[in-house]
Amino acid sequence: MFIEPEHRENTLKSVYYDKETPKLFINDDGELQMEIEGIILSTNEDEELVENLTLELLYVEKENKWLVNEYSCINRFDDLPSENAMDSYIVTKY
């Protein structure tokens, strides 16, 4: 089940994509699909938020690119991964 994230315009700080979790599969409609998990950092009223992020992407063959199909952000109850575990993430800063 995917939960629509709350609107947080101009609050995104960085996104950590887990390099170990991308899953490729063919969905029920015969389309190539990928799921990626990660962590998203943002701010809300001067408070830093850490949330789990799940992206579902579809491959569009005629455009030769991946497009986001669905996504979700769910609150985390733990901190960011340790520095040792961060080697398994790709970090995108905004």
Rank of each mutant, 00 (worst) to 15 (best):
K23W: 06
E20T: 11
K19T: 08
Y71P: 00
L58Q: 03
C73L: 13
I36R: 07
T92R: 13
L49M: 04
L32I: 07
E70D: 14
Y16Q: 03
N64A: 11
N84A: 15
W66L: 05
M86R: 15
E31V: 01
G30W: 05
N52F: 13
Y89F: 12
N64F: 06
R76M: 15
W66Q: 02
I39N: 01
G38I: 01
Q33A: 06
S14G: 09
Y89E: 06
N84Q: 15
T43P: 02
K93V: 15
C73M: 13
E56P: 00
Y16T: 02
E4T: 08
T54Y: 10
I40F: 02
T11F: 11
D28W: 01
E6I: 10
L49I: 10
L32K: 09
K13L: 13
Y89C: 05
T92L: 13
D78V: 14
E83L: 14
F2I: 05
I3R: 14
P22Y: 08
I3D: 11
Y16E: 04
S72C: 11
P81E: 07
N64E: 11
G30H: 02
D28C: 04
N69T: 03
Y71H: 14
E70L: 15
V15H: 11
N10M: 09
E35Q: 09
G30T: 02
W66P: 05
D28R: 06
N10C: 10
L57S: 08
L58C: 00
K13D: 10
E4W: 04
E48P: 00
K62S: 10
Q33D: 01
E4P: 01
C73Y: 14
T54D: 04
G30L: 04
V91Q: 13
K65Y: 07
I90E: 14
L53E: 09
V60W: 09
G30F: 04
G38H: 07
E51W: 02
V91M: 12
D79E: 12
T11A: 14
P22R: 04
L41C: 12
E56V: 08
Y17H: 10
S14P: 06
L58N: 02
E63N: 07
K13F: 05
K19Q: 08
N10D: 13
V68W: 07
N44T: 00
I39Q: 01
I74W: 11
L67E: 14
L12A: 11
N44C: 00
K65I: 04
I90T: 12
K13A: 03
T21Q: 05
I39C: 00
E6G: 12
L55C: 06
Y17P: 02
K65F: 06
V50T: 09
E35G: 01
L67N: 12
L49Q: 09
N84P: 04
I40Q: 07
K13R: 13
K19G: 00
C73K: 10
E45Q: 04
Y89W: 03
D79V: 01
L53V: 04
Y59C: 03
E51A: 04
F2T: 08
L67S: 09
D29Y: 07
K19H: 01
D87V: 15
Y94T: 09
L53D: 05
V15P: 10
N75L: 15
V91Y: 09
